[in-house]
Design a protein around this nucleic acid. Structure first.
Lengths: 341, 341
DNA sequence: AAGCCTCAGGTAAACGTTGTAACGACTGTT
DNA sequence: AACAGTCGTTACAACGTTTACCTGAGGCTT
């Protein structure tokens, strides 16, 4: 079916290597020959055989993105951001689903289908800090997310503490004093939960507000249902609160539903801020004020880092593991409007 | 880095071919040699080089899934279903985003990065019926969705008419007589919209109920916001209605919000049925009654069909294009409960 | 005992590309 | 006129598999 470079060369009346040079455009080729080869390529509908190229060069132009699930909005949007970044750089993306399962994640790290891709962008969920040394791989690997810190691999993370602090500050600046938190996971040592809570605490401390344990609602399930349940629990506590900082957007969307149901107007009775800036939050009613972790930047940074590693490795250069933090910013919508509202 | 088959063979003291036979397990090899080769593979941590295998066999074990977006829940969940099916068959999936853009879709069809995958699972959005002949490709291609019918490629579609009919019947059986439809797209010739509306009409006709144009709300935007807007428009029409059939789940979720806001209790004042059975619908409040298109079956069927095509093509067998319809079923939740509620 | 299966495994040629080394043809310098 | 340097090109050897094709060694039939 597919025409080969040999066919192209034959048609253009040059050697295979010259044809190859035209395709890759790195050596000096006489304009006349460039023209003839290009013409032959067009005429034959030639497309380079990736398998052969991979075999020869050892590079595939494909990167593997390992995420728990796509149906979770957060990961779906992350994957999309990564793919957009990859497309811009002419890379293909092979997605591998881990299901957030520790065993599966470790298995994937240990026995990757190498030679199918050049490197891995890995967003762990089931693994935790004690598995950190498993991240010492002999292939390029960049980590995403906050499940594991200080590992031996490059790491791109979002500004959890700063973002949470900014969100809380926004609520304080707009006159809220009793700010509840839903979605806390005090049993986690690392992970986004504790980080975001500490950002919240920082903001309180800085504003001279007291930290009230009663305002913190634990909730492991970081989805809509969890947000609903946590908010109902908060309301059930019969304590005063005038704002909620949901540790992620899905929790916030669930909270929104609970507040509606309990006739607590948002933002007038209770202001609400989330974290993640999911597409859904943009279309909720009211629109959700939330911390935008700048997924596009994260994806872009992670991909750039990975590609650098891939490139370095070919030159036998191996630098120390880097940790890069991508700054976030607050998106103000109706659920917690700005001061001059 | 990676050990080669030659290394394995050398260590086991056999020829490369024997080692290869052990790896692929198809020829007769003496148990003793199997043991030695297996041992060598383990000792060296050998992993087959896919690029070389691909080059030799012409198969990659990777299929390409082309979808508009992942951030749209529907496609995210479809992609996930496809990947799950692929994983079960030891296939990898390379995702290509088209953005739902016609130009991009056509480009992808015409110039696929072949030799990077064995076939394509394609879910068009921007293309329409007049582009049908572009689907005549010389590589294995299976179509998903209802944008294009009667094309020259294999096609897996969901049971739109039947599902919509079943949803409407359910509403009728539970005593509803004035069933509104939101999300109609009367300008579309093909596509899920018109099909689902005709299922709705069939159910009405069969029950002897009149079709009332006033109950149909047009809406192009099949997302939450569109559902909200359409429902508000419906309410604004000041006509009687006791149920809403939203043409997809996102519309239904938007409708849910509008109904809450307007204090119309679901399901007591207005029952609501959606279509797609998204994960979100399971966690909405109240849970959404919806038509489950059985995405897992669709994905499984599509993949099976594609793999058959891939296999046939190697044997130079090319059968006629097939169209396979996967049956759907109704998932009854609180937004439109069953008769004995 | 010659012939013929089956089993087991070796040899070497592909697959389509790129990198290496080499070569001829110019240009400009000594 | 000899030399080095650049340009443009080519032949050939990889890359790691799989797969024709071939070779023996047994066991069985004739």
């Amino acid at each position: 079916m597919g025409a080969t470079l040999r066919d192209v060369a034959a048609m253009a009346g040059v050697s295979v290597k010259t044809a190859s040079n035209v395709v890759n455009g790195l050596a000096f080729v006489k304009p006349e020959n460039v023209r003839r080869v290009t013409e032959a390529i067009r005429a034959l509908g030639y497309q380079p055989n990736m398998a052969a190229r991979n075999l020869r060069t050892g590079r595939t132009g494909v990167i593997c993105l390992a995420v728990p699930q796509l149906a979770f909005n957060y990961f779906g949007e992350l994957a999309e951001a990564v793919m957009a970044a990859a497309q811009a750089r002419g890379q293909k993306v092979l997605i591998e689903l881990t299901g957030g399962d520790r065993e599966h994640e470790l298995e994937l790290l240990k026995r990757p289908q190498l030679s199918l891709f050049d490197g891995v962008l890995f967003s762990p969920l089931g693994m935790s800090q004690e598995d950190a040394d498993q991240l010492q791989t002999d292939y390029p690997l960049v980590l995403l997310g906050e499940r594991i810190l200080m590992g031996p691999a490059d790491h791109v993370l979002m500004e959890n503490i700063g973002g949470a602090k900014r969100a809380t500050e926004h609520l304080i600046q707009t006159g809220h004093r009793r700010i509840a938190v839903i979605g806390a996971r005090s049993h986690d040592i690392v992970g986004s939960g504790p980080l975001r809570v500490s950002g919240y605490k920082e903001a309180l401390a800085q504003a001279g507000l007291p930290f009230d344990e009663a305002l913190i609602v634990e909730q492991d399930d970081w989805h809509r249902m969890g947000g609903y349940v946590a908010t109902m629990e908060l309301i059930g506590r019969q304590i005063e609160f005038d704002a909620i900082f949901a540790l992620n957007d899905e929790l916030a969307l669930g909270a929104l539903r609970a507040l509606y149901q309990e006739q607590l107007a948002v933002p007038d009775a209770v202001a609400l801020v989330g974290f993640d800036n999911l597409v859904d939050s943009q279309f909720s009613m009211p629109g959700l004020t939330t911390v935008d972790p700048c997924r596009a930047d994260i994806a872009e940074t992670a991909l750039k880092t990975l590609l650098e590693r891939i490139c370095d490795r070919r030159k036998k250069k191996i630098g120390p593991a880097r940790t890069i933090r991508v700054s976030s910013n607050l998106v103000v919508r109706e659920s917690a409007p700005g001061p001059n509202h």
